[in-house]
Design a protein around this nucleic acid. Structure first.
Lengths: 195, 195
DNA sequence: TAGTATACTGAATAGTCATTCATTTAATCC
DNA sequence: GGATTAAATGAATGACTATTCAGTATACTA
């Protein structure tokens, strides 16, 4: 069965890791459990990953990579800041809501340690926030968003709302689709609480 | 040294746990490390807590208890929904910003496992969200908040913004006080992005 | 002060699991 | 088809640690 330097086996390991980690949590998941589900031997995992934590990193990278790539693409497809915001909200909720196991990883398991969060927020999450803050900058320039907004602050606030909706969806056992909240989120973000 | 059924030793253990867990993360912190810092024997921990996880639970309970108790108190001290919102924002940021180690626990370490998050969000966090959503209900009744708001949704959104500010502060190494963001947060929540 | 109850101690236990590596299996080459 | 390289295996290793509990120390009681 050798000669497998393409991604097949690696993918199988990552897919298995998503399921096991979502189900049992990172620390309760043993390498043997992942190997078993992936249909490989324990040692094989170490041909593709240097250690257990690197599996988690890879999971995060591929998930977050999609957010950034598709986020940029969505933002480029419409003209106004308001429309761009709508696309980001829709995309975020759709991507998270697509796969509950993966959502558990991104909303819960990836936030394990300060060390880990630090690393991921400095890199990929920062890039994602930059996309959002760019939209805010545009909105201010257009004159549709309030000009006293700090774009970096606003981006964090927007992310905060999206992230909370995602986490809430993961924890709730309801079957309601996450993306059904998109309109409410956009309304709230644009208009705030006040009349 | 016996006869210590008051809280002294228990407190010492909890205080030590905050420091060790904030510094090394829950899973990297051994019971022996906590005992050492608290100045007690390993076994003593088990006179006050039935296992390691219960220490984390207790930490959460006492922290969240303060949010709920003081939250109610703050809300009762002012009349309008807008003022109440301001008090909640101020309190939340002040409580989190008061102690960085404790903030690491609440923003990172407590979110370890789905199981754990599930439990805490169903109870204490739910209670906190209820306080916020009551404020929203009042605002709508007063006519100062938009009447198309779903109070439960709005409460989650508000919490999301606060939580993100808190997490961002924990991860940033800046010395800026967290509560200095209160005004920006309230402005954002009340007015949204649009002009 | 002897006796009892309570608090505390820390070495020993009992298990767990990430990681390694000698060996086996499969693919490729000439 | 024999030799060589690449992949994969899985049992063994080694390190780690939550929890227990028999023993010690301290406080209270009468």
């Amino acid at each position: 069965m050798a000669r497998n330097s393409d991604g097949t086996k690696r993918e199988a390991i990552l897919d298995a890791a998503v399921v096991e980690i979502a189900r049992h949590g990172y620390y309760q998941t043993t390498v043997a459990m992942i190997a078993r589900r992936a249909g490989v031997a324990d040692g094989t995992i170490y041909l593709y990953f240097s250690n257990k934590e690197e599996i988690l990193f890879s999971l995060f990278e591929s998930a977050m990579g999609r957010f950034i790539l598709e986020g940029r693409s969505q933002v480029d497809q419409v003209a106004t800041a308001t429309e761009k915001l709508g696309r980001i909200v829709e995309l975020h909720l759709t991507l998270v809501g697509k796969d509950r196991d993966l959502a558990i990883i991104s909303q819960v398991e990836l936030r394990h340690s300060l060390h880990f969060m630090d690393q991921i927020s400095r890199n990929q999450v920062g890039e994602y926030l930059a996309i959002i803050s760019q939209v805010v900058v545009q909105g201010v320039e257009e004159g549709t968003f309030r000009k006293d907004l700090d774009p970096v602050f606003a981006a964090k606030a927007i992310f905060g709302v999206l992230d909370e909706m995602a986490t809430d969806w993961v924890l709730s056992r309801k079957n309601k689709r996450l993306e059904s909240q998109a309109k409410s989120v956009v309304d709230f973000l644009l208009g705030g609480l006040s009349i």
